[in-house]
């Protein structure tokens, strides 16, 4: 789950959005936390009590060496052990598309957290569509830099796909935020098709 590590923290525009969504002093679980950069920021910004799960041993060791509470584990297999509503927020930042069973992971997030925050790259983004249309090859962008044969991303979806799944799972979308390439928000009054075309990534605050 070290997808997030490939992208420099400066590029992680979703962090700023997540910052807004998290209430100060809350208890959070960051699934796929990398070296704990987001956890550290949330601790500094909001004084949260942060825990993390990370697949890569290096990520875990770096995080623990920084004094963070991080468990070496896999979103696909290690979320089952957590009790219901153990956290105020469970965060899955840029990791959903790398899980083997995204729906089951989502079920666990919604069960473990009062609320869940999910961010992911939108595969319906116009540049990706255009690359596929013009070049006929799997698209690559700054957010998705790896070629198909080495990427950890195995379950891409579009914003529309994700919203449909949430609908299917009876999940409330408390907040939906789409960001363009420069990290700017797409206006709230824009229709879904617009978001799906111009959002490079999306951040959702979920509740069930």
């Amino acid at each position: 789950m070290n997808v997030a590590q490939h992208i420099p923290a400066a590029r992680r525009v979703d962090y700023e959005v997540i910052r807004e969504l998290v209430e100060p002093g809350s208890r959070i679980l960051d699934v796929g936390c990398g070296d704990g950069a987001l956890m550290t920021m949330l601790q500094e910004w909001h004084g949260v009590r942060a825990s993390g799960i990370e697949l890569s041993q290096k990520g875990v060791n770096d995080a623990v060496a920084r004094g963070l509470s991080v468990v070496q584990g896999d979103a696909d297999t290690d979320l089952d052990a957590y009790p219901d509503n153990a956290f105020d927020y469970v965060i899955l930042s840029q990791t959903l598309q790398a899980t083997r069973d995204p729906k089951r992971v989502l079920e666990n997030l919604l069960r473990i957290g009062e609320r869940s925050i999910v961010s992911f790259p939108n595969f319906g983004y116009w540049r990706l569509r255009l690359q596929l249309l013009v070049h006929g090859q799997m698209p690559r962008t700054g957010l998705l830099p790896d070629p198909w044969w080495s990427t950890s991303n195995i379950h891409f979806c579009t914003i529309r796909d994700f919203v449909a799944l949430c609908d299917d799972m009876d999940v409330d979308l408390l907040r939906s935020i789409a960001l363009n390439t420069s990290g700017q928000r797409i206006p709230l009054n824009a229709p879904w098709w617009f978001w799906n075309l111009f959002g490079e990534q999306a951040v959702f605050l979920l509740h069930r």
């Binding site: 009590r49 041993q57 060791n61 963070l68 509470s69 070496q72 052990a81």
Partner: peptide
């Protein structure tokens, strides 16, 4: 680790 998670404890795990 799973037991500590299930108990809601603050836990790190390094292999």
């Amino acid at each position: 680790v799973h037991a500590l998670n299930a108990a809601g404890a603050d836990v790190s795990f390094v292999e």
